[in-house]
Amino acid sequence: MDSLVVLVLCLSCLLLLSLWRQSSGRGKLPPGPTPLPVIGNILQIGIKDISKSLTNLSKVYGPVFTLYFGLKPIVVLHGYEAVKEALIDLGEEFSGRGIFPLAERANRGFGIVFSNGKKWKEIRRFSLMTLRNFGMGKRSIEDRVQEEARCLVEELRKTKASPCDPTFILGCAPCNVICSIIFHKRFDYKDQQFLNLMEKLNENIKILSSPWIQICNNFSPIIDYFPGTHNKLLKNVAFMKSYILEKVKEHQESMDMNNPQDFIDCFLMKMEKEKHNQPSEFTIESLENTAVDLFGAGTETTSTTLRYALLLLLKHPEVTAKVQEEIERVIGRNRSPCMQDRSHMPYTDAVVHEVQRYIDLLPTSLPHAVTCDIKFRNYLIPKGTTILISLTSVLHDNKEFPNPEMFDPHHFLDEGGNFKKSKYFMPFSAGKRICVGEALAGMELFLFLTSILQNFNLKSLVDPKNLDTTPVVNGFASVPPFYQLCFIPV
Rank of each mutant, 00 (worst) to 15 (best):
P30G: 01
L208W: 08
E81G: 13
L90Y: 14
E438A: 12
Y483Q: 01
K423P: 15
I207L: 10
I74Y: 15
I264D: 05
L170T: 05
I39Q: 02
W120I: 05
D341V: 03
D373Y: 01
N258V: 11
S460L: 04
P211A: 07
S140L: 06
F134I: 15
L361F: 04
F428R: 03
M345T: 02
I181F: 11
V38N: 02
S12G: 07
D349G: 10
T450A: 11
H410E: 15
P481S: 05
R139W: 10
T34S: 15
E438I: 04
N258T: 14
P260Y: 07
S3V: 15
L15G: 06
F412D: 00
S343E: 11
M426E: 04
T301R: 13
Q261E: 13
D165Y: 01
I205G: 12
N474S: 14
E155S: 07
R150M: 13
L54G: 02
D256C: 11
V5C: 14
L313N: 02
F239L: 11
T304P: 02
F295I: 12
L294C: 03
C175G: 07
Y68N: 06
G137E: 11
Y379F: 12
D397R: 03
P489G: 05
N202V: 08
T386R: 08
L156D: 00
Q261T: 07
N41D: 03
E438R: 05
P63I: 01
Y347T: 01
V473M: 11
A161S: 14
V355M: 11
L29V: 04
E281S: 13
D397E: 07
E328G: 12
D397V: 04
N231R: 13
L77S: 00
T371A: 07
N196R: 13
C151G: 07
P33Y: 00
E400G: 07
F376K: 01
N289G: 10
K315G: 04
M129D: 15
L467A: 02
G228W: 09
N258C: 11
R329P: 01
E85M: 10
L294R: 00
L366H: 08
R144F: 13
N259D: 13
E438Y: 07
M136T: 10
T348V: 07
G62R: 00
G417Q: 08
F126C: 05
I182N: 01
Q22D: 13
E92R: 05
L287F: 04
E415W: 06
G442Q: 15
F295A: 05
I488R: 04
P37I: 02
P279W: 15
L195A: 12
S478R: 13
T302V: 08
H353K: 03
M136V: 13
S390Q: 07
K249L: 11
H276L: 14
P33S: 00
G296L: 14
F187S: 05
H410W: 12
P31T: 09
K138S: 11
P489L: 00
E288M: 14
S422V: 05
I50L: 14
R26C: 08
Y483N: 02
M257L: 14
N277Q: 14
R329V: 13
Y347P: 00
Q340R: 13
N56A: 15
Q214A: 09
L395G: 08
Q356K: 04
I45V: 11
K72R: 11
T66S: 06
P35Y: 04
L102M: 09
E326L: 00
L314S: 04
F482S: 13
D89E: 12
L449T: 09
F168E: 13
S23E: 05
I123L: 12
L314A: 09
C172P: 02
C151L: 07
E326K: 00
D341A: 03
R144W: 10
R335L: 03
P101H: 14
Y483T: 03
K235V: 06
E285F: 04
E246M: 09
K420F: 05
P35D: 01
A439H: 15
L54F: 10
L311K: 01
F100P: 11
G296A: 15
A103G: 14
R125P: 05
I39A: 09
C10S: 14
S390K: 05
F114E: 14
L4G: 04
C179W: 05
K200L: 14
C179R: 00
N398A: 12
S115P: 08
F110R: 13
H251W: 02
K52V: 10
N289R: 06
F448T: 02
R26V: 12
L461G: 08
I50G: 05
N204P: 04
I389C: 12
S23I: 08
E274T: 08
V248A: 06
E354V: 00
E199T: 13
D341E: 02
K247G: 05
I264T: 09
L361R: 11
F263K: 03
A161C: 14
T386Q: 10
I47G: 14
E93Y: 13
S115D: 11
F267P: 02
M136E: 10
E199Y: 07
N236M: 02
T371H: 10
K432H: 15
R125N: 08
P367H: 03
S127Y: 09
E438C: 04
T299L: 09
A82V: 13
F114R: 12
C175M: 13
M198T: 09
N258R: 14
I223M: 06
P337L: 04
T469C: 08
D463N: 11
C435E: 14
L14R: 02
E85Y: 10
F425E: 07
M269Q: 13
H316R: 06
K160Y: 09
R144C: 12
T450L: 03
M136H: 15
K119T: 07
N259A: 12
K241R: 15
G135M: 15
F282S: 03
L36P: 04
G98Q: 10
T283S: 07
Y61E: 01
P166N: 00
Y424L: 12
T302R: 01
V370H: 04
I213W: 08
W120G: 05
N218L: 13
T301G: 12
L131D: 04
R307G: 03
K241C: 04
G296R: 14
S365E: 06
R125L: 11
F114S: 13
Q214G: 10
L9M: 07
K138M: 10
E328L: 13
P227T: 14
V319D: 04
P260W: 03
E288R: 10
V64A: 08
I99L: 12
S343F: 10
P166A: 04
